[in-house]
Amino acid sequence: MSPDTIIQATNVAKWYGAFQVLKDINLTVRKGERIVICGPSGSGKSTLIRCFNRLEAHQEGDITVTGVVLHDKMRNVASVRRNVGMVFQHFNLFPHMTVLMNCMVGPMWIKGIKPEAAKKTALQFLERVRIPDQANKFPVQLSGGQQQRVAIARSLCMQPAVMLFDEPTSALDPEMVSEVLETMTSLARDGMTMVCVTHEMGFARAVADRVIFMNSGQIIEEGKPHDFFTNPQHERTKLFLSQILKH
C-alpha cells in the first residue's frame, strides 16, 4: 500500500441479515483524488461510504482508512473518524446549537482546542463556505443550501484527510443545489480528497477523477468521467445514464 493511500477496500462484503448489500468491493482512494459514486437507489452506495468511517460494519474483506484497519474490536475508531469528514443528505446539524457552535464543538471536544482558537477556525471555514454572517443563527433559521454548507464547514473544521458526501444535494430545492455544488467544487480545487455519492452528473464531469457505478451491491463499472459518460461499457450503466440524462 502506497503511503498516499487514504482509503483502501479489498474484497469487502456486507450483509443485512440474509440480504447481501455489498459484494466483493475493491476500491482505493489516494490522496487528492475525487471520486464520484453513482448508481440506482438501493444499490449500496450509502452503505459503502458509511463503512469508510465505520458507521456501518462490514463482515468480510478489509477496509483501511488513513493506515488504520477497521474492525469490530478496534479501540481507536474515534481517531479514524476525526480524520474522515462526512456530509449527510439531511445535513444533521445540531439544532440546539448556533451555526458557530456547530462548527466549534468538534475541535473543542475531540481535539481539546481552546474555544477562542476553535472560534477562529470555525469563522474561517464559515467564510470559506460563504456564510460567516449567519454564524450566530440557529440551523432552522437557515435555508437548506445554507445548512448543507454549514455541515460542510463543520466537517472541515476537524481538518479531515478525506471528505465523504452522501447525496448532499438531493434533499435541496433546485436553486440551492448549485451553491452547495460550488462549495464542493472549490473544495476539490483546493486538493481535498473526496468521495461523493451524487447524481449530479455535471459535477462529476467537471470535478471527478474517477466515476464508479454500483448496482446491487457491486461495482460494475469504473472509469474517467469522459469515458464513463460518453462510452459506458455495461448495459446497466447505459440504462441508468439514459434515464438520468433524459430530461
Binding site: N53, A78, R81, G85, G106, R154, M158
Partner: peptide, 14 residues
C-alpha cells in the same frame, strides 16, 4: 433523529 447520533459519531464523539 438517528441522524444526530450519526453526525455525532462521524465527528468522533464518544
Amino acid at each position: 433523529d438517528r441522524g444526530q447520533w450519526e453526525a455525532s459519531r462521524s465527528m468522533g464523539f464518544g
